[in-house]
Nucleic acid binder design. Sequence first.
DNA 1: CAGGATCCCTGAGGATACTG
DNA 2: CAGTATCCTCAGGGATCCTG
Lengths: 121, 121
Amino acid sequence: MQEEPQWDPYSKACPTRRLLDRIGDRWTVLVVGALAGGPMRYTALARRIEGVSQKMLTQTLRALERDGLLVRTVHPVIPPHVEYELSTLGRSLLPVLGALERWAIDNISGVLAARDGYDRD
Amino acid sequence: MQEEPQWDPYSKACPTRRLLDRIGDRWTVLVVGALAGGPMRYTALARRIEGVSQKMLTQTLRALERDGLLVRTVHPVIPPHVEYELSTLGRSLLPVLGALERWAIDNISGVLAARDGYDRD
DNA sequence: CAGGATCCCTGAGGATACTG
DNA sequence: CAGTATCCTCAGGGATCCTG
């Protein structure tokens, strides 16, 4: 929300570069995208994001929670019931990552074709 | 450009997941962003993207070239003169990654504040 | 100038086992 | 169910040296 000119990911030590790393991360993109439709539980996320390990899912969720992008709600029942949902900040990221995801889907065939041509030479 | 329904980054083996990795990569974002204004030479890119190693810069440029996102032009003179510029496909990625970069800059302070709160507890 | 080739090391990340 | 804790691997990536 600030237009502070000192933030510059092209500068080595600027925290925006690390933030860029986080939000561009494969698991971040998929987790945020999965939560686009509303709150989800841990196991549901694990099922939705095929191939994610428990470690990476937990680690990604913790990082997103720490950065204020999602809210973790624990319902103290047995068995445990934990829900994750995007915060306001997290939802503001939704269109950005959605566009990234969409670009990948829309252009994968073009990219694959380009690779074919490149590798043929 | 295709709306083929089989592409799904949530599927483990789908090539879109790897593509997502590539375009969300920190160096990719910065390289593509640097080339937004027009062609640049190798050394100019290295200077612009503070902290990038020769290895990673070359590697990123090669990957982007292979994927058809940028064009590498060698002028056979001595000393060598090589220019990199975005292809049409690469330029189509520009608004997407630009939004990513902008989001990071616009929201870094919010994120830092969230971290503060999280770490305090 | 624009890299290629190597060495090396940290840490991302998977697999597995265990727990409140 | 929703994790935590460990072990282990390999590849991302930096540093350094060399070259057409």
